[in-house]
């Protein structure tokens, strides 16, 4: 059982890092082409290609969560809840500040913000039960 849990964790880490590496390469290679390529449907397809490794990473996350025990799932639940609430708060506050003249927040920045808060929240929730 312990071996299965360790294997699941290792598989998740390997596949998650691989997916995000592919994502980074695709963003660097494809996004500069999006503005230059024609017609419009090609722009749309090219812009969405980096989404493929993100979907793979999400499916690996779901599989990983399914392999966790009840306390580990609680840690994940608390972290996701905190990340959701804080991301909503920050983006909504920023939206109000845009009216006051602050620069517009790009929608593409919301996911990295969520991931950053989620990472910190996992660390905090893990410490709480240690």
């Amino acid at each position: 059982m312990a071996v299965d849990r360790r294997a699941a964790r290792r598989r998740y880490r390997t596949r998650f890092i691989a997916s995000m590496s592919v994502y980074a390469v695709l963003v660097v290679l494809l996004l500069p082409l999006v503005k230059r390529i024609e017609p419009m449907w090609a722009k749309v397809v090219l812009a969405l290609v980096p989404l493929v490794p993100i979907v793979v990473a999400i499916s690996e996350m779901l599989r990983f969560v399914a392999s966790l025990d009840e306390l580990e799932r609680r840690v994940q639940f608390e972290a996701v809840s905190a990340a959701l609430i804080l991301t909503c708060l920050v983006t909504f506050a920023w939206g109000l500040l845009e009216i006051a003249g602050l620069p517009q927040l790009r929608v593409v920045m919301v996911l990295p913000l969520f991931c950053l808060i989620y990472g910190l929240a996992v660390w905090a929730a893990t410490r709480k039960y240690a």
Binding site: M1, A2, R5, D69, E70, L71, E72, K128, A130
Partner: peptide
Amino acid sequence: QAELADALGVSRQTINAIETGKYDPSLPL
């Protein structure tokens, strides 16, 4: 703790959290 965790199919951290009173297990556990 690791042996007990293995027998129950949970992590060692979960056993530690139960023993220190930081986490109350579910009824099935």
